[in-house]
Write a protein that binds this DNA or RNA. Structure first.
Lengths: 220, 220
DNA sequence: TAGATTGTTAATCGATTAACAATC
DNA sequence: TAGATTGTTAATCGATTAACAATC
C-alpha cells in the first residue's frame, strides 16, 4: 500500500477552484473537458492543473481529457467533501451568526450543528435552525457527539481559552477567525482564516500599482 | 531610487501575524523584542521572521533586537494599514451585513463606507451606520467618491456582473467572497477569499491524520 | 494516420533554511 | 570582553514550468 503523502498546500488551495468551475461546466451540459480548456478559462497553467488533479488519482484520456462527473467526484473525494463533517461554532456575534446561515459550507462538507456563546443574552433559541447554547455545555456535548471540527468566531481575547476547551471536547481541527495566535499541541490542526492577510494583499498590491503609476507619470 | 520590488506573497501573509503578536506584546509593556522571542512564541523560524520584517525596511540592533513601536510602525506602513482605504460592499446578505459590523477591518485600514444590494427590501436604512443603497446607484457614487476597493458578498451567480460594474466604477481591487472565478482585465487585482480552501485544508488534514492513525492501529 | 492531450521526467525558479561575518 | 542577535550570502528544498514520450 502506498504511504500517505500529504497533498501540497498550494494544490489544496487550487482544487476547490477547479471544482467550482467544473460544477459550472456540468450545469452547462459539458460531459468531458481538457486541462487546456480549464486553464484558458481560469487563466492558469494547464500543466499545473494536470498535476493537481493527478494527485487526486484520476486518469484522463489523451485527446479527450477527463469526464466531468468523474473529475468532480475524484476531487471531492480527495478533499473529503463527500462525507459531511459536523462542526461546532463558538462566538455567536455578527460573523458567527452569518456563518450559521451560510449555505455554501454544506457544499464543502461542513455542517455546523450547534453554536455556543458565553453571553446568556444570545443563547435563547435557534438561528437558521442551529441551536445556540451556553458555552458551559460545550465540552460535554461536543465530546458525546464526537465532533472533531471547531470554529472560533469569538473576540481575540477569548480565543485561546476557547481553543483549550475545544481540545478538551475532543476537537482536532480548529478554524480560527479570531485575530490571535493559538497555542495548541502538535496533534491539533489550526487553520487561521486570516482576513487580515487578504486585506494586506489588497492594500499592498494597490500601493504597488499606484506607486508604479506615479513613477511612470513622473518620468514623462 | 530603488525599483518597486513586489513583496513575496508568503511574507505578506505572515506580516499581519507578527503585527497582532507585537500589539499584544506592546500591551504587556514590552519595549523591545528579538526575532528569537517572536519565533519561540509563534512557533516559527527566527531567520524567516528576520527576513520578513527586513523587507519592511526596519533595521534592528544586534543583541537588543527591535523597538516594538518602530517595528509595528514599519510593518503597518509597509502593509499600508496606516492610511485608511475606503471600500464598497455589494451583497447585503448575512455575510455582507456581518462585515459591516466587523470592527477589525478598520484596524487593518479598511473602511466600508457604503453597501449595495439589488434587493429593494434590504436597502432601507443603515446597518452599523453604513448606508445600504440600491445597486443602481453604485457606479456613479463609487466613481465620484474615488473608491478603489470593492467587496463582493453576493451569490455566485451575480459575482461576475457585479465585478464588471465595479470596474466601471473605478474599482481596482476586488475582494471576492463569492465562490466563482471572476474574469477581469489584467490591471484589476482580485483577491479571492476562498473559504472553501480553508475547509479543504481542514478536512483533508483531518483525513490524513485519521488515516495514519488507522494504519498505525492496524499494524499493532 | 495526424494531432491533441495525457502523464512523466528534467530544468528552472523562488522561497526556506543554513552558515557566518558584523556589531552592539 | 564575550555572547547574543542582526543582516547577508550560500545551500537546500519544494513547487512551478518546460520538454517529451505515450496514446487515443
Amino acid at each position: 500500500m502506498s504511504t500517505i503523502k500529504p497533498t501540497p498546500a498550494p494544490t489544496l488551495r487550487r482544487l476547490p477552484k477547479y471544482l467550482e468551475y467544473l460544477h459550472e461546466a456540468k450545469r452547462k451540459g459539458i460531459a468531458s473537458i481538457s486541462c487546456t480548456t480549464i486553464a484558458n478559462d481560469l487563466k492558469l497553467d494547464s500543466v499545473q492543473i494536470r498535476k493537481d488533479i493527478g494527485i487526486t488519482g484520476i486518469v484522463g484520456k489523451p485527446k479527450t481529457g477527463y469526464n466531468v462527473d468523474e473529475l468532480i467526484h475524484s476531487i471531492e473525494k480527495h478533499l473529503n467533501w463527500d462525507d459531511m463533517s459536523s462542526a461546532i461554532l463558538v462566538g455567536a456575534g455578527n460573523l458567527g451568526k452569518a456563518f450559521l446561515g451560510y449555505e455554501n459550507f454544506k457544499k464543502y462538507g461542513l455542517n455546523i450543528v450547534v453554536a455556543f456563546d458565553k453571553d446568556r443574552n444570545k443563547i435563547d433559541g435557534n438561528i437558521f435552525n442551529v441551536p445556540i447554547l451556553h458555552i458551559d455545555k460545550m465540552v460535554d456535548l461536543t465530546y458525546r457527539m464526537k465532533i472533531h471540527i471547531g470554529i472560533i468566531t469569538a473576540p481575540a481575547d477569548e480565543a485561546q481559552e476557547i481553543a483549550e476547551l475545544m481540545i478538551l471536547s475532543g476537537i482536532r481541527a480548529i478554524w480560527n477567525f479570531a485575530p490571535r495566535h493559538l497555542d495548541v499541541p502538535d496533534n491539533i490542526y489550526v487553520e487561521n482564516a486570516e482576513l487580515s492577510s487578504d486585506i494586506s494583499h489588497i492594500k499592498r498590491r494597490l500601493k504597488e500599482i499606484t506607486d508604479k503609476e506615479k513613477k511612470y507619470s513622473e518620468s514623462n
